[in-house]
């Protein structure tokens, strides 16, 4: 895939450390993302990869180091947090669609309440994005009536309706049955082609090879290896990375 990343850095993490009580989950993380770049983060369970991306939209907070988003440093202040969250979309492993709202209402809630968009315009916006994820006919249904793959695509549409600058994906296909993984990955690939800045935590190495500009391997809270996919898969430098890839790619 063509690398469309510009020179401008959107996210800069410097020396970030995080503890859950005594457990040191992120250790001295230095991590940059440029606009339009697609980053895939992989690693074993408990390596801190989900925590890493959750620090970006402050679903988790870091105790040391700095995270700068679009020139603004993330801190404790809540109004700033809300405005940053509006610019950073997130797709969860468990979809987390609002069960009491229709798919369309799930998508229009953000634009209407956070950005003050009118109902008609929000509905149009939502339908546009539902078409982009290929489920325009599901708008009036409730999430429980959709399949897993459709729910995740609806969740992607919901995040996109806020027109974020960056999209975070936290193991988006890990809860899906195998036959539905492809439909979600296809949507993510199409999204990447539009030039969206994306950070994905995933085990789908095929997807990573297709889409990623940069691969990151984490182990025990540290970034062990970083590089473009060809280099990553062909010439792994680190033993632990080699071991991990060996385990995953044997499927």
């Amino acid at each position: 895939m063509t690398n469309r990343a510009s020179g401008e850095t959107v996210i800069v993490m410097t020396g970030v450390n995080k503890w859950f009580d005594d457990f040191h989950v992120l250790k001295d993380i230095d991590f940059n993302v440029r606009r339009g770049e697609r980053v895939v983060v992989c690693g074993a369970s408990g390596s801190g990869k989900s925590t890493l991306i959750r620090c970006i939209n402050r679903l988790e907070d870091h105790q040391a180091g700095s995270i700068v988003f679009n020139g603004v440093e993330l801190g404790a202040e809540t109004k700033q947090t809300a405005s940053i969250r509006a610019e950073v979309g997130m797709v969860f492993q468990q979809f987390n669609l609002f069960p009491h709202l229709t798919v369309l209402e799930n998508c229009t809630l953000g634009p209407m309440k956070v950005r003050g968009v009118g109902r008609a315009e929000a509905n149009q916006l939502a339908m546009d994005y539902l078409e982009k994820v290929h489920i325009p006919e599901q708008g009036e249904k409730y999430p429980s009536q959709l399949s897993g793959g459709q729910q995740q695509r609806a969740a992607i549409a919901r995040s996109l309706c806020m027109r974020p600058e960056v999209m975070l994906f936290d193991e988006p296909t890990s809860s899906l049955d195998p036959e539905m993984i492809k439909e979600v990955l296809d949507v993510m690939i199409e999204l990447a082609e539009t030039g969206m800045t994306m950070i994905c935590v995933t085990h789908e190495m095929g997807f990573a090879r297709t889409v990623a500009d940069k691969m990151i391997f984490m182990d025990e809270g540290r970034i062990i290896e970083e590089g473009p996919p060809e280099e990553f898969f062909a010439n792994t430098k680190n033993d632990r990375t080699k071991l991990f890839l060996g385990q995953i790619l044997s499927h």
């Binding site: 939209n57 679903l59 809540t78 809300a82 405005s83 969250r85 509006a86 950073v88 979309g89 997130m90 969860f92 468990q94 987390n96 669609l97 609002f98 809630l109 953000g110 309440k113 956070v114 969740a155 919901r158 995040s159 806020m162």
Partner: peptide, 20 residues
């Protein structure tokens, strides 16, 4: 996860309570 999803689309604390 419901709260996190609401936060991730930028809902304020009160909006989260009221709509989600």
């Amino acid at each position: 996860g419901q709260r996190e999803a609401g936060q991730s689309i930028g809902l304020s604390h009160i909006q989260l309570l009221r709509y989600v």
